[in-house]
């Protein structure tokens, strides 16, 4: 390559870099953008044969979704279910994570791998038997059944991320406390847990997002009382009329809080998705 060509290359490189990044940003945002704008369109604008790019926005779809279609109730259900399962996962998962980080015991490796296997199992495998069990226990259409079944993926997330976090807490602190006569639980609760809080928070947010986003279990295990928001969004597809504005308004209300949460933990999103294999 001649020196001149190299110079040209250096000059245009930032332009290419900029354009490339712009493409990344635009494509990432576009479907989301289209959802949000459709949710603000009138019925006619939403299904106009030539898609409408500029229009005067209306909140009518949100009103209809929230007040006439029971989406408010569904959002409340989603909030209850996702919060409870997250809380439960943290309560059950952090001690386990601490033990995995601090103690040596037989079967530790196997235990760790068993948690990982839960990440791989397809929900449809569990959906059929869980439906039958829930049905015979009269738990169909309750918050409880979703809270419990969501533990199959929230609990592993908490264990994975927090184990990593606890490993970062200096062992010396444990030793010092033990010399002063502190018991194992106190060492965990008073010293380690506060120091591992960043990891706990990240795992809690990720658990919340995953639980919030589920459709399959909710489809199989709920009816009306415990119907979650994603299920509410799909219930508009009656095969007769598709109120796209209302559907997208519901979609926006479901997705927007998750996007915000995910942005809060964006640095550790990958860690959550890969179960700590990639940091």
């Amino acid at each position: 390559m001649s020196a001149e060509a190299a110079a040209t290359r250096r000059r245009i490189a930032p332009v290419g870099h900029f354009l490339g990044l712009a493409v990344v940003v635009l494509t990432s945002i576009f479907p989301f953008y289209w959802m949000v704008t459709t949710s603000l369109k009138t019925r006619a604008d939403a299904v106009a044969r030539d898609p409408v790019w500029f229009f005067s926005p209306t909140l009518a779809n949100y009103r209809e979704a929230l007040f006439d279609s029971g989406v408010a109730h569904a959002l409340l259900n989603s909030t209850i279910v996702a919060s409870c399962t997250t809380l439960l996962a943290v309560v059950l998962g952090t001690p386990a994570a601490y033990a995995l980080a601090r103690y040596e015991f037989r079967g530790k490796r196997e235990l760790w791998f068993w948690y990982i296997t839960n990440r791989m199992v397809s929900p449809i495998v569990l959906a059929v038997p869980v439906f039958l069990i829930a049905n015979s226990l009269d738990l169909i259409d309750t918050h409880l059944v979703l809270i419990l079944i969501y533990l199959t993926f929230t609990l592993p997330i908490v264990v994975w991320i927090c184990t990593d976090q606890f490993r970062g807490v200096p062992v010396a602190l444990d030793e010092a406390a033990r010399l002063e006569g502190a018991r194992a639980w106190t060492i965990f609760w008073r010293i380690n847990l506060p120091l591992a809080m960043p990891g706990v928070v990240v795992s809690a947010i990720l658990s919340f997002i995953f639980a919030w986003n589920d459709l399959l279990y909710a489809l199989v295990l709920t009816r009306t009382q415990a119907r979650t928001a994603p299920l509410a969004a799909t219930s508009f597809m009656s095969g007769y009329e598709l109120p796209w504005g209302v559907i997208m308004a519901t979609g926006t209300m479901i997705v927007l809080p998750m996007v915000i949460f995910a942005m809060l933990v964006s640095g550790r999103l990958v860690q959550g998705l890969t179960m700590g294999a990639v940091k």
Binding site: N135, R223, S238, G239
Partner: peptide, 22 residues
Amino acid sequence: WETLPYENSRERQVLNFVGGGD
């Protein structure tokens, strides 16, 4: 009443009959 998509209405009712719904 509960408004269902036609495609789900049989499933929902069968589950309701079997599982004792409302």
